[in-house]
């Protein structure tokens, strides 16, 4: 208490202040900047940009796009059949994936699962997240054959990876007081889950499910390309037969459906909170 307070109002007035830099050590800061600059230069100078080939390809691209206009909706029965299958894949996979993700999320939440179960739950999530759906689809097509069943399995796994991970994180952040209250009335593990945990994560789970349905609709078109059923297969065939106008029609419809589903899922997520 011997030194004077240094914040005397109206005292020295030409003190300045600057926001402290993100990385406080100047050596680290500047060498990091230099490193990034060197890397970018190296990356761009060593990339095999073949300008001649790009110039050659441009007219071909023009031809493809030219052939795609106007889009051809004549084979609408084929179009509808493909989309119907894609919808079925997406809905079933979402339903299955979301239902399975609930127990897996509980297993993978540190605050409600014992250590060995937690590790098992986490590994399940890591496994289902480690490959892109297209790779998973290739595996499942090889395992169960061409068609929508492979697509359903693929997207179910994809849904588990995403929904269970985010739901587990949500469970880890719940208000623990509600859980304590349920413990204090003498509720067992499952009753505590149902009363103390699930109501807290329910809106999030509904939001995630809507988002996942949206995402599965999109992905169902992609996995179809490798033979897992749905509109993706139709699209692939159209490309293969140079039916660019039909392919363009499919793409337009995909865009339209994604827009609509995104709108609906956004609206539902807003309502549910």
């Amino acid at each position: 208490m011997t030194e004077k307070p240094s914040h005397t109002v109206g005292g020295q007035s030409n003190r300045t202040w600057k926001k402290p830099p993100f990385i406080s050590n100047p050596v680290v800061r500047y060498s990091l900047m230099a490193g990034i600059a060197v890397y970018l230069y190296w990356a761009f100078s060593s990339l095999p940009f073949d300008w001649a080939r790009i110039a050659e390809g441009l007219p071909r691209a023009g031809r493809i796009f030219g052939g795609a206009i106007p889009p051809n909706f004549e084979r609408s029965d084929l179009l509808m059949k493909g989309f119907k299958e894609s919808f079925q894949i997406a809905f079933l996979a979402t339903l299955l994936g979301v239902s399975l993700s609930v127990p897996i999320a509980v297993m993978a939440a540190k605050n409600v699962a014992p250590k060995p179960i937690y590790l098992l739950g986490r590994s399940l999530i890591i496994v289902s997240r480690s490959f892109h759906p297209v790779i998973v689809a290739i595996l499942f097509v090889a395992a169960v054959g061409f068609g929508p069943f492979a697509g359903i399995l693929t997207l179910t796994l994809y849904s588990i990876g995403f929904v269970a991970k985010l739901l587990a994180e949500e469970i880890e952040e719940i208000d623990w007081g509600q859980v304590e209250a349920m413990k204090s009335v003498g509720a067992g593990y499952f009753k505590t889950l149902i009363y103390g945990v699930f109501p807290q994560v329910l809106p999030r789970q509904i939001g995630l499910s809507m988002y996942q349905l949206d995402s599965n609709l999109r992905a169902s078109a992609v996995v179809g390309i490798v033979g897992a059923g749905g509109i993706g297969g139709t699209l692939m065939n159209a490309f293969g037969r140079y039916d660019y106008d039909f392919a363009f029609a499919i793409l337009l419809l995909i865009i339209g459906i994604i827009l609509v589903s995104e709108g609906i899922s956004g609206w539902v997520r807003k309502k549910i909170w």
């Binding site: 208000d175 007081g177 509600q178 209250a181 349920m182 009335v185 807290q200 329910l202």
Partner: peptide, 25 residues
């Protein structure tokens, strides 16, 4: 029975469900 500082009710459930949760044991 225990009563908490932060009430610790199940916010998203109805009052009746909260009250009945006292019977969970």
């Amino acid at each position: 029975g225990m009563v908490f500082q932060g009430f610790n009710l199940i916010d998203r459930l109805t009052v009746m469900e909260n009250v009945l949760s006292g019977r969970l044991g």
